[in-house]
Design a protein around this nucleic acid. Structure first.
Length: 413
RNA sequence: GUGGUUGUAGCUCAAUUGGUAGAGUGUCGGACUGUGGAUCCGAAUGUUGUGGGUUCAAGCCCCACCAGCCACCCCA
């Protein structure tokens, strides 16, 4: 038997849940005036090297990269922002004016060791608000995310925010961090000794060396005037919208393109993979990809993780019941049953036997599928044109014409 | 990529020191030939994750691989 690749999943009976969730998220985005972008699932490797960052774990060890038959280096997208920005530049969306409000949905790929909530092919729903440097854009983006979580009914999440500064103030902070960690350098874990040079911010969220992080200098104390004002305004906006959040200096994010605001939505009971969504501002990304200098902000939710969280809260949608099941008494009425099913299917969710089951078997099936009504068709019904309609909850039966049936079933709804 | 743990019917899980692979549940059928849910009866379904090895004999012991889960790591 050939089985699926590690870290991937077949969605079969749960497709109902996925459709529901995708629909909810999409609706909120559309209502806020965002439009959908669909970009290719693979891109030139260079796109991610330049945007996500050469020194990040994603680029260093997690990308599905291969050469195609034309010797081009191709990578299955590990995240959604860089491709959307590439599309923004390539299609000259700037000419349509700012802001551009875009969303995307689809599979992402990262070569990681799978566990619950961490897949090699996973799905993100993401939003990008392109063009505004103002903190009100940050507030709108976060608000949008909160509205989405509300729309799907999720409660027990926590919003954490931080500022990572910009090109003016971050270097100072990096220096301060390096100076702070230097005396402990030999005590740090192997990973952290490497990170010290590559990206010292990452030391802050290392679980092994957490004891050093407590007293480490905080980025919020090193922000330049502009970054500090930006961050303070965002916090004020969030307060005014009564959005609860926590400033968490350990939120640094693993992608290099972030500037200023970063945030994560945590769902603590999910265990180690507890980030259900995250995002931030990327004021220099478009420029770094060869486009104009346009500041932007965005975020993405992980669909698999949202489903895990919804499952915990018992908020997954229930299977939709059948409205009508059409029972045929024997072989002779099969085709009439199918015709009735066809007529009723314009109004209701219907089903009909295709297994050649006897009457009892058909009723059992209707019952198992929670059919609200059954229509029984036998020799007599065909002769008189009066069908037997049974309410499966009360057990009551009546004889009705097809034309009356629709009213009757609707009336009981 | 590192460490740990698990893998037996569709699902949940049994199987003593190595000695005939089982139960519950679900599925299908019957009791009830034009009426479901309850009850009773019956039936089908297994390469015990895969491949090697040890043994008279392996679900059980050994090795490798595969997959899930937990943690690291990383993030969605």
């Amino acid at each position: 038997m050939i089985s699926r690749i590690k870290g991937t999943n077949d969605i079969i009976e749960d497709s109902r849940i996925w459709e529901w969730l995708e629909g909810k998220l999409k609706n909120v985005a559309l209502n806020f005036g965002f439009i959908e972008t669909r970009t290719p699932i693979f891109e030139a490797t260079e796109l991610f090297n330049r945007s996500v960052g050469n020194e990040t774990d994603i680029v260093q060890k997690e990308m599905y990269t291969f050469e195609d038959k034309g010797n081009r280096s191709i990578t299955l997208r590990p995240e959604g922002t860089a491709p959307v920005m590439r599309a923004f530049i390539e299609n000259n969306l700037l000419s349509k004016g700012l802001p551009q409000k875009l969303f995307y949905y689809g599979p992402m790929f990262r070569y990681e060791r799978p566990q619950a909530g961490r897949m090699r092919q996973f799905h993100q729903f993401g939003v990008e608000l392109i063009g505004s440097p103002l903190p009100i854009a940050d507030a709108m983006t976060i608000l949008l995310a909160i509205e989405m979580l509300k729309a799907i009914g999720l409660d027990k999440f926590k919003l954490k925010i931080n500022s990572t500064g910009d090109e003016k103030c971050r270097p100072n902070y990096v220096e301060a961090l390096k100076a702070y960690y230097k005396p402990f350098f030999n005590d740090l874990c192997d990973d952290c000794r490497v990170r010290y040079d590559r990206n010292v911010l990452r030391l802050l969220d290392c679980k092994k060396d957490a004891k050093y992080a407590e007293n480490a200098p905080k980025i919020t104390d090193y922000l330049c005037h502009d970054c500090k004002v930006h961050f303070d305004k965002l916090r004020k906006y969030l307060d005014e919208m009564e959005i609860e959040y926590e400033v968490d200096p350990s939120i640094v994010r693993g992608l290099d393109y972030y500037t200023r605001t970063v945030f994560e939505f945590k769902y603590p009971s999910l265990g180690a993979q507890d980030a259900i969504g995250g995002g931030g501002r990327y004021d220099r990304l478009i420029e770094e990809l060869g486009g104009p200098k346009i500041p932007s902000i965005g975020f993405a939710f992980g669909i698999e993780r949202l489903i895990l969280a919804l499952e915990e809260e018992g908020k997954l949608p229930k299977a939709e019941d059948l409205d009508v099941y059409i029972v045929s008494i024997d072989e002779d009425q099969r085709i009439e049953a199918l015709k009735v099913a066809s007529a009723l299917s314009r109004y209701f969710k219907v089903d009909v036997d295709v297994m050649g089951r006897n009457v009892k078997g058909q009723f059992s099936y209707a019952s198992k599928e929670n059919a609200r009504y059954t229509v029984v068709i036998g020799e007599e019904e065909i002769r008189t044109g009066l069908y037997t309609l049974k309410n499966m909850k009360t057990g009551e039966q009546s004889k009705v014409r097809l034309s009356e049936m629709i009213k009757e079933i609707n009336g009981a709804k």
